[in-house]
């Protein structure tokens, strides 16, 4: 009976899934900033003891809004997202999607109609655990 109970407990423990980490292979998106208009930019810094660096730039490319993370690097974590936010927290935000990689030049399309004056903060945000990894206030 002890073996049965131990086996059942093992099954229960293994039923708890692990969280997915963000890819680490460097990306190099093809977005060409020379063909777009720079609207705002800021330097990324880490938060809560996480290391994040690089430049966040907001472009208008023929009417399409794009966020470019250049020379980017971030600590790894599960469910990392790129947010545009009204504050340095996630009080009100636009989710641009999952972070493509912890390193490299990467671009994210911004939904049409987003007010970049209002959503001026770029956040690297762990959605699953509601934790801020890094941020940039763009000007």
């Amino acid at each position: 009976m002890k073996k049965i109970i131990f086996g059942l407990l093992a099954v229960l423990v293994l039923a708890c899934g692990a969280e997915d980490a963000t890819p680490t292979a460097p990306v190099n998106d093809t977005f060409d900033p020379t063909k777009a208009t720079l609207l705002r930019q800021g330097n990324l810094t880490g938060s809560n003891n996480y290391k994040v660096s690089g430049v966040a730039q907001l472009y208008n490319e023929n009417g399409k809004l794009v966020l470019l993370l250049d020379d980017f690097s971030s600590s790894n974590g599960p469910d990392l997202r790129v947010y545009l936010s009204t504050t340095s927290g996630a009080a009100s935000f636009v989710n641009l999607g999952k972070l493509k990689s912890t390193t490299g030049k990467q671009s994210y399309e911004i939904p049409a109609g987003t007010n970049l004056t209002e959503f001026k903060f770029v956040l690297i945000w762990c959605q699953q655990f509601s934790s801020l990894f890094g941020k940039s206030e763009t000007n």
């Binding site: 947010y83 996630a90 009080a91 009100s92 636009v94 989710n95 641009l96 939904p111």
Partner: peptide
């Protein structure tokens, strides 16, 4: 609160 690409506390 998550609504598509939008969200808020």
């Amino acid at each position: 609160y998550l609504n598509g690409t939008q969200g808020e506390a």
